[in-house]
Simulated scan of single mutants.
Amino acid sequence: MLHPSYQELIDHINEVNREKNIPEINSRYSVVIAAAKRARSLIDGDYPTVPVKGSRRVLSIAVEEMKEEKIGILTKEAAKETATVGYDDMSVVDFSADIEEEE
């Protein structure tokens, strides 16, 4: 079971995005793709931005990073204005290319 739930995670991410005047995300797909991309970057050698105790799965680490506001999710609209987004101390997962492929 995913904790926090998808809806709790989406609500939390949108709360942060509203504070930063960034378009909100509105689907589980956004969270799943962002978590998968972050997990892949961890596998490829990026260091986690949250403390890791023991051997945790990279997907759990990615979700924890989203929950702890260590990474942010950009929508297609926000990705066009990356310089003004306001994720100063966060890594950003940009999945806009994936969205364009789906449309």
Rank of each mutant, 00 (worst) to 15 (best):
E103K: 12
A78D: 04
Y87A: 04
R40V: 06
N17R: 13
M1F: 08
D94E: 04
A36R: 09
L2Q: 15
A39S: 15
Y6L: 10
S55R: 13
E64K: 10
S5I: 11
Y47Q: 14
V85N: 00
E69P: 03
S5T: 15
D98A: 10
V52Y: 10
K20W: 01
Y47M: 11
I33N: 07
S41Q: 14
A39H: 03
V16E: 10
E65S: 06
D94A: 03
E68L: 07
D88P: 00
L59Y: 08
V32A: 12
V31H: 03
V16D: 07
T84I: 05
L42H: 04
M66V: 08
R18I: 08
I61H: 05
I43M: 12
N21V: 08
A97V: 12
P4G: 10
I25P: 03
L74S: 03
P51L: 11
G86K: 01
F95T: 02
A36G: 10
N17E: 05
E69S: 14
V32E: 13
D89P: 02
R57Y: 09
E8M: 12
D88N: 07
L2F: 14
E102K: 12
G86C: 04
K80S: 08
R56E: 15
T49N: 11
V31A: 05
K20R: 15
G72C: 07
D94Q: 03
R18N: 13
Y87V: 05
L59A: 10
P51V: 13
V92M: 05
N14Y: 03
G86D: 03
T75A: 04
A78M: 05
V31N: 02
N17W: 01
M66K: 04
H3A: 14
Y29C: 08
L2P: 15
E24Q: 12
I73H: 01
R56Y: 11
E68P: 02
K76R: 13
I99N: 04
Y29E: 13
Q7K: 13
A36H: 07
S5G: 14
L74W: 00
P51T: 12
I71R: 01
F95V: 03
K70I: 09
V93C: 08
H12F: 08
K70Q: 13
D44E: 13
P51N: 14
E102L: 14
E69L: 08
K53C: 09
A35Y: 01
A83Y: 00
K67A: 13
T82N: 00
I25M: 09
V50T: 11
Y6E: 05
I71W: 00
E68A: 10
E69G: 06
V85R: 00
Y6K: 06
T75K: 02
T75G: 03
V52E: 12
R56V: 14
E81F: 08
G54H: 06
S27D: 15
A62T: 10
